[in-house]
Design a protein around this nucleic acid. Structure first.
Length: 477
DNA sequence: ATGTTC
């Protein structure tokens, strides 16, 4: 594989073999050196062979190996002649992050940390297979799939302001619940409003530093403020939708006569029946995830109010934004000088729309879309803002997180004999968790330094730093 | 990520 340096933060994988377009990797030289030993760069090149891909197969600085497509990858396909692939979205359809501010400062919760984290842990079900927040009959579940966050708000789990500050308004269009298998529906019936496991979390933190006052002001962020950060997805339902459609597409792709460099790149032309059905089913799972995070936010409001015995008005928990980082979306972008309809796959990548974009909420439009980048549980998370340069270079996309450096297995080994929760406590982070190995798998050393990832996208201009958050209380699955 | 290999 031939890789050319473009500048300090951009590298081009030259076209070779069946590649239709080059690959572009956003990274420092040191990060690229590490990547050379992994399969992730080969996956970037593999994606570049798919029919209808435009401009380039993109990789963000948090790229790592994934199912078929790399995690941290962005690929856009022509809406008329291109393909859609479940592997380009990922198993956790609409995995995403939401950030809320509060009217509280550190002193308001300083002595209540243990109590708060206990109450959050009790009221927010977490862990693999967690259930019990909201139970849905089949009819009601289909409404969730069709309406997303709007269903949750209609049930009293939030406000219209929450919807305005959610990507897509919390509802992807074109969702068809009749395409969801009985098994997926069954898995979804008891998991709405639950956190899940792995890297999913609920975190109470502090705004530690502001980098860009104008954007921070627009987003309602100021130093010393208590925040709530949530990371979750579409749970077992989304997993099942992905699994169901991978099976469909593995068969389908054999009828197309296209040679794939990797079977995990199974796909369908967007305009085919299989392609349209996947997109309509994917939208259902995306809407389930939006509703899930909306209910998790509502539960957080309830816990803060009850534990601190304060009114909703005093708590003043406002949703800053909710972003999704595992999705394929129909969007119009400028390609070689003309507007073109595309299917933009973002897998472990976040939308990063710049100033003036109609899809950005009105109160943020002048500065650009908020971007939420969770780090590991002991260090920091970042709020960024989208840029015009991202619109021009990356189909309005940027990174999504720190990215793993240790496999789960390697992390377990490294954590042996250690008490990770004690180490976190020494850093000022109180943590409650469900799974046996979760804390070890998710320990800070298992991840890249999130600030290095953020520095790359900031320096490359495909997002700008707005604020840094420091974790105080963490609930893990 | 995932009722962590129906």
């Amino acid at each position: 594989m031939k890789i050319q340096r473009i500048d300090d933060h951009r590298w081009r994988i030259e076209r070779s073999g069946q590649m239709r377009v080059p690959g572009i990797v956003y990274a420092t030289a040191a990060m690229l050196d590490q990547l050379q030993q992994e399969e992730a760069l080969q996956q970037v090149a593999n994606v570049a062979t798919l029919p209808g891909i435009v401009e380039a197969s993109l990789a963000m600085p948090d790229i790592h190996w994934g199912y078929g497509f790399p995690i941290g990858g962005v690929a856009a396909f022509d809406w008329q002649n291109g393909v859609v692939s479940p592997g380009g979205v990922g198993y956790d359809i609409n995995c995403g992050v939401r950030l809320a501010t509060t009217g509280l400062v550190y002193d308001d919760i300083r002595d209540r940390g243990r109590e708060l984290v206990e109450a959050l842990f009790r009221h927010v079900p977490s862990g693999v297979g967690s259930t019990g927040s909201v139970k849905l009959g089949p009819k009601e579940e289909k409404k969730v799939l069709a309406r997303g966050s709007r269903w949750a708000v209609q049930q009293g789990f939030g406000t219209d302001d929450d919807l305005r500050h959610t990507e897509d308004g919390g509802c992807l269009p074109g969702a068809d619940p009749e395409l969801i298998s009985a098994r997926a529906l069954e898995r979804g019936s008891r998991q709405l409003g639950t956190l899940g496991s792995g890297n999913h979390f609920l975190e109470v933190g502090l705004v530690e530093e502001i980098y860009q006052p104008a954007a921070a002001d627009a987003f309602g962020l100021h130093e010393g403020q208590v925040t709530v950060l949530l990371h979750s997805g579409s749970r077992g339902l989304g997993y099942q939708v992905c699994d169901d459609f991978l099976a469909v597409m593995r068969k389908h792709v054999q009828t197309l006569g296209i040679q794939l460099p990797d079977r995990q790149l199974a796909c369908a032309y967007i305009q085919s029946e299989a392609g349209q059905r996947y997109l309509a089913a994917m939208a259902c799972a995306a809407n389930y995830a939006y509703a899930n995070r909306q209910i998790l936010l509502h539960r957080s409001r309830e816990v803060f109010e009850q534990t601190l015995r304060i009114s909703p008005r005093a708590l003043d928990m406002r949703l800053v934004y909710d972003v999704c980082h595992n999705i394929a979306k129909k969007e119009q972008h400028l390609v070689q000088g003309r507007q073109q309809w595309l299917c933009v796959h973002r897998k472990g990548a976040t939308r990063a729309f710049g100033p003036g974009q109609p899809a950005v909420p009105e109160d943020y439009r002048e500065v650009g879309q908020p971007i939420l980048i969770p780090g590991d549980m002991g260090t920091a998370s970042y709020v960024l803002v989208g840029t015009q340069r991202a619109m021009e270079e990356t189909f309005g996309s940027t990174c999504h997180g720190a990215g793993r450096v240790l496999s789960r297995k390697a992390a377990l080994k490294r954590a042996k004999g250690r008490a990770i929760h004690r180490e976190l406590e020494d850093k000022g982070v109180l943590v409650r968790w469900t799974g046996r190995g979760t804390l070890a798998e998710e320990m800070p050393e298992a991840y890249k330094d999130v600030s290095m990832v953020v520095e790359v996208v900031h320096a490359a201009g495909i997002a700008r730093k707005v604020a840094r958050l420091r974790p105080l209380l963490v609930v893990k699955g």
